[in-house]
């Protein structure tokens, strides 16, 4: 990516394009934000208005206070945070172990095993979800968080791939030095390569966290008690149960997006470093 854009004209065109693209991608978010500040009556106005009408009344946060105080939203939020955190931890831990093994251990046939793991990424969820459901029911795990957490402890193709690449990019010399220092394989992994892979671990964590935070299908399938609902499931309930409280739904969506934005802002330095791989200094 070393190609330079030359000339002020080309630069202007490039920036113009990027600004337009950014505006287009931000549109849904802007619409969500505006809608969360509208009263129910203003929602279906035609032509649609960009005016957040609630802001001009004496209860500007009406939708937010309803979901925060009257609905179970705090519980949904806590459930989502717990499930997503546990699942992300599971991914980081098991993908780190698998990635390290694939990158650094002399395992016979490891490339074939790795290819098989990668191939699972290409099997659509729709194909596996029914047997998965039957399995979970067999374990008696329905209406618990376990079906949302435990599978993440069983390695994921993406995380394994990413961490394998990262571990492979780290110098081999540390392992030899550590062997000279008397460390066995697990200690070398745990005390040396795992800390060094921090940027990649953080990116795997963030991506797994976001994926689980956004997940609707599995909570919908496995959770029945409203006390266990995650945020996406809770938001869905606003639509079905209360005949589409769009304003509240959007307020809930805004709140549920915030943690992701915060996490991303805090970790983007690592996430980018994790994706670019290596970048190891001596």
């Amino acid at each position: 990516m070393n190609r330079r854009v030359s000339g002020p004209g080309a630069l202007l065109a490039l920036y113009g394009f990027l600004v337009a693209y950014a505006a287009l991608s931000l549109m849904p978010f802007a619409w969500m934000l505006i809608t969360s500040f509208k009263e129910q009556a203003a929602l279906f106005q035609l032509p649609p208005s960009f005016r957040p009408s609630l802001l001009f009344t004496d209860t500007p946060m009406a939708n937010y206070s309803v979901i925060w105080n009257e609905r179970n939203f705090v519980t949904f939020f806590r459930n989502s945070a717990f499930v997503s955190f546990m699942a992300a931890i599971g991914q980081v831990f098991t993908c780190a172990l698998a990635g390290y093994a694939f990158a650094r251990l002399p395992l016979p046939g490891k490339n074939i095993i790795f290819a098989i793991i990668l191939a699972t990424a290409f099997v659509p969820t729709e194909v596996t979800i029914i047997p998965e459901f039957l399995l979970m029911r067999g374990f008696g795990w329905l209406d618990t968080f376990l079906p949302l957490i435990v599978p993440s402890f069983l390695v994921g193709a993406f995380g394994t791939f990413m961490l394998r690449e990262y571990f492979a990019s780290l110098p081999h010399d540390y392992a030899e030095a550590a062997r000279m220092d008397g460390a066995r394989e697990f200690r070398i992994f745990w005390r040396i390569y795992l800390p060094l892979a921090q940027p990649a671990l953080i990116s795997v964590f963030v991506i797994a966290f976001i994926n689980n935070w956004d997940e609707l299908l599995r909570p919908l399938l496995y959770l029945t008690s409203p006390d266990l609902y995650t945020v996406p499931l809770g938001l869905l309930s606003f639509v079905s149960q209360y005949e589409a409280a769009w304003g509240q739904l959007m307020a809930g969506s805004v709140i549920s997006t915030l943690p992701l934005i915060i996490i991303y802002v805090l970790t983007q330095r690592y996430v980018l470093a994790g994706f670019s791989g290596g970048g190891v200094k001596g």
Binding site: P171, D173, A177, A178, M180, G282
Partner: peptide
């Protein structure tokens, strides 16, 4: 052994580097 490129553990302090074989 002292390696040509030293192979110091970059995420550890000097103290931790020197102590590593002893902790091990």
């Amino acid at each position: 052994m002292v390696f040509q490129n030293y192979a110091l553990y970059p995420h550890m302090t000097v103290r931790q580097n020197i102590a590593f074989p002893l902790h091990t």
